[in-house]
């Protein structure tokens, strides 16, 4: 696969804050319909990478394209085909669920807004919450409503930042299964970050491990496990986070 064929193509991306190197020579591509997990410990450069993709941080150098377009030059065109959901971002608490979704449906230019919102609420089993104030929802309800917002425009590329954080195992399992179902039905391309390795193993076709701002491992879950000689992704994560691994540039010959 060449970078031009990918939905997301990141090439030699660097970001420094003063003397601090946040990410260094990060390159990866995501194919259409692929679910890629971006993993790394706190401070690994995961957030910086996502925030560059979202246009919140400008890269120091390197190139980035989404749908073959430069997201800095074609911001609106790119964002119309993307969406985003995070456990750490909320919808305005003083609006009803249906009002919040209606506002975002308008911002994304969704046709037949009412029908679209109703079908998503039904899909995520939160139709009964439509007239409830968003501020009064539980974490699980809030997460599902956020996912409804993230799917309003039938995004071709979806960024999910720890969508199951703070959910109990039952709700997390439901959300995971719903996401997998929606992704398969729509053939969405997804970039998924999570500290929940079960999520990653279940949902992601491929995994990128970031460590100290560099991608140090890339492949399917099985390939990663073989590469590190560990039994689970969680063990790989701990192995890397505890610095028991050398970054590619530091590897001994």
């Amino acid at each position: 696969m060449t970078l031009n064929q990918a939905v997301v193509a990141v090439d030699k991306l660097n970001k420094t804050f003063g003397k601090v190197v946040a990410i260094e020579e990060v390159s990866f591509a995501i194919n259409r319909g692929e679910v890629v997990g971006l993993l790394g410990a706190n401070g690994a450069g995961k957030s910086t990478t996502i925030q560059i993709l979202l246009g919140l941080i400008s890269p120091t150098s390197g190139s980035l394209s989404i749908f073959g377009l430069d997201p800095w030059k074609e911001r609106v065109n790119v964002l119309e085909r993307c969406n985003f959901s995070s456990a750490y971002v909320a919808l305005p608490y003083n609006l009803k669920v249906i009002e919040n979704l209606d506002v975002f449906a308008q911002l994304y230019g969704v046709p037949n807004r009412k029908a679209k919102i109703a079908s998503l609420l039904e899909l995520f089993e939160v139709g009964h919450l439509a007239s409830k104030l968003t501020g009064g929802l539980s974490s699980g309800e809030s997460t599902r409503v956020n996912l409804c917002k993230a799917l309003l425009n039938d995004p071709e590329f979806l960024l999910l930042d720890e969508p199951t954080a703070s959910l109990d195992p039952d709700i997390a399992d439901k959300v995971r299964k719903l996401l997998a179902q929606v992704q398969k039905e729509r053939g969405m391309t997804v970039l998924y970050t999570s500290h929940n390795m079960k999520d990653v193993q279940e949902l992601c076709d491929r995994v990128l491990f970031l460590h100290k701002g560099k991608i140090i491992a890339e492949g399917t879950s099985a390939e990663i496990l073989t590469q590190f000689g560990q039994a689970s992704l969680e063990e790989v994560f701990i192995h890397i986070a505890r610095d028991q691994v050398l970054a590619p540039a530091e590897e001994k010959p």
Binding site: N83, F84, S86, V89, A90, P92, Y93, F104, G109
Partner: peptide, 18 residues
């Protein structure tokens, strides 16, 4: 500031609006 306090600003910034 209201969007900032309600943690909604990111949703606005990543929506296709100028």
């Amino acid at each position: 500031l209201e969007d900032l306090w309600s943690r909604n600003l990111l949703n606005i910034f990543v929506a296709p609006i100028t």
